[in-house]
Amino acid sequence: MLTRDIPSTMSDEDVIKEYLATQNSAYFEILYKRYSGKIFGKCISLLKDEARAADATQEVFMKILINLSKFSGKSKFSTWIYSITYNFCIDMIRREKKNPSLLVDDIETKYDKEDDVEDVYLLEMKVKRLKIILEEIPVMDKSILLMKYQDEMSIKEISEITKKSESAVKMKIKRAKQKFRKTYKEIYKED
């Protein structure tokens, strides 16, 4: 069977079932087409280097293929693979420990006293500036902002990936947004 013979409307779950049953590479190609670019996007956002992001994409995809039979279907397939991607990249950065400050998980409570940052502040930002700010903030904050605004995950989904309670996730999002605004103000003082 060729990739073009498989209906594009086929659900991820059905593609997985068929791939596991037949090991036909056409089903692998469907999954690759649907998700490889998004995985690469997350890897490059977190690792900040194209070559490393390409290597990470390859490794993440291998992890997905090897563990495909373990996908239970309890969560969306996209949530499952993004969870593997985020955890892989964060582990990679943790192993390298080039800049431990970028891994800071809990930002000091002083940010809590600041005003909430409106979603529109982040969503209407120029892409070039967004990219620069994301490169500057700690990887944990960056991950949580990407999950919320790029992957449009629910609080429940983020809490499953990060293995934190839903209230802790809400607090983390709030702090990440405050950190984002603070970094923006430091870089673009003239605005």
Binding site: G37, K38, F40, G41, I44, E50, M125, V127, L146, Q150
Partner: peptide, 13 residues
């Protein structure tokens, strides 16, 4: 802007 950034990364990919 996050979706726009994702599009840029897809093009790069």
């Amino acid at each position: 802007s996050f979706k726009e950034l994702e599009k840029l990364h897809l093009e790069q990919f």
